[in-house]
């Protein structure tokens, strides 16, 4: 079976539509609040980390 780009695009759109309908409905405001809380929790975890004063951030990150 050969697909034209137009047929492929149609398949992509229908697959995406199917996928979107399968999502668990969650209110956007709740999602945003949950995301903010994760960022806050990460910050609290970081605050507990002791780092020597002389330690510079890994700017110009090189492995």
């Amino acid at each position: 079976m050969k697909l034209t780009r137009r047929q492929l695009a149609a398949a992509v759109v229908s697959a995406t539509a199917m996928a979107q309908t399968s999502q668990t409905p969650v209110r956007p405001t709740d999602e945003l609040q949950a995301a903010r809380e994760r960022i806050k929790a990460n910050g609290e975890t970081l605050a507990q980390q002791q780092v020597p004063m002389a330690t510079e951030p890994a700017f110009q990150f090189k492995a």
């Binding site: 990460n42 970081l46 980390q49 330690t55």
Partner: peptide
């Protein structure tokens, strides 16, 4: 937080 994370990252390295 970003800067702290990047400093911890250096210690991790």
């Amino acid at each position: 937080d970003y800067l702290k994370a990047m400093r911890v990252r250096r210690v991790i390295q």
